[in-house]
Design a protein around this nucleic acid. Sequence first.
DNA 1: TACCAGCATGATAGTGACTACCAAACAGGT
DNA 2: ACCTGTTTGGTAGTCACTATCATGCTGGTA
Lengths: 205, 205
Amino acid sequence: MTERHSTLRARRRAQTQRTIQAHAIRLFGERGYDATTMNDVAEAAGVSPMTVYRHFPTKEDLVLADQHGELIAERIAASPAGQPLVRRIGGALVDAAAALTGDDVAADRQFLLVRLQLMISTPALRARHLDNQYALQQAIVGALDDDATDPDAAFQAQAAASACLAALHTAMVRWAEDDGRTDLPRLIGKALAAVFGDDVIGPAR
Amino acid sequence: MTERHSTLRARRRAQTQRTIQAHAIRLFGERGYDATTMNDVAEAAGVSPMTVYRHFPTKEDLVLADQHGELIAERIAASPAGQPLVRRIGGALVDAAAALTGDDVAADRQFLLVRLQLMISTPALRARHLDNQYALQQAIVGALDDDATDPDAAFQAQAAASACLAALHTAMVRWAEDDGRTDLPRLIGKALAAVFGDDVIGPAR
DNA sequence: TACCAGCATGATAGTGACTACCAAACAGGT
DNA sequence: ACCTGTTTGGTAGTCACTATCATGCTGGTA
């Protein structure tokens, strides 16, 4: 139960996950999502189908992993309550996108791009992604913690969060259609600014 | 090939569909969506599983049928292009809701209510529903036919449509949580007015 | 009446995602 | 050398869904 060991196991575990997911994304990109079976993925990754299911409970999880809802919700909850809704939400989204740039986009842009294109074009994946986004929207509304007594405020929060997420989504789709040639966080900032104005979102950082 | 026959057959066909769907919704409500198999539905409806699949290609289609995307898109395309986006979209949604009131809500409110509650609480159904809503959003944006050269206009159209649909969705969820005691079209109008203001949507009809 | 054309339904045998359930291997620490 | 928990593998099943073929029913025709 030493610290060193658990991190060792965790590392091997994470490595196995990366291997499986990498082979899965590659196969999905080559043959298509529906035409690739879980057995194909297992075989390509050199593990048994059971192991694939252990790490990714559903086939969709092979593409849609690691959402960052908590990060965004935290930033929103930490933002001052006095500001307009779209400023609080939009600011958190831009911050989150900037934080992700260091991780995923720069590191493995092609990987992220294929995932995004699969997510857009495959109905099952798109539906799951939209459900994830809906959950994020609910988390955002919850993090706003405005007075819950006013029903109008709830409507406004939902609409504001939805509009911000739509801008984010549209920017990501645009980015994927452009094969990732543009700068993603900047595109997101532009999308938010186009909808809500520069003064609301703040200057692009 | 006479006209009378095709309508007769069409009526029987529609009757079979109604029977199957009614039993399906009832079973889903009683035992839960996941706990009810397609065979259960077929047996309850007194048909073979094949027949169920003929009329409803997927299990989800038993709950999520007859979307009204075309109606909304038509109304938006017919609205004058000069008005603000949210007025064009919101007006079409209120109109559509009013049109549906005559059909579904008054006729079989309980049926609609159970479907809505299933749709909200069952992940698979919610995901499919959100995907349908996304398709509707794209149809709305397409129906706006603003000049496609301006990328900012596209962002704005997406965000406006998303906010309007979010208001609609929130109103429907609220209505379902209230067990359908309130007036649905009016609630939708109130939701849109809360977000965009009475002056934009127009007085509740 | 006998017959024909077309749909609607039905039975059979699959595929593939996913889930128990149990067995084996392989650490890590005593 | 001996446990103990973690990771992995195998087996057999359920269930949604599909392809294919056979059957029956129904409304119109020679």
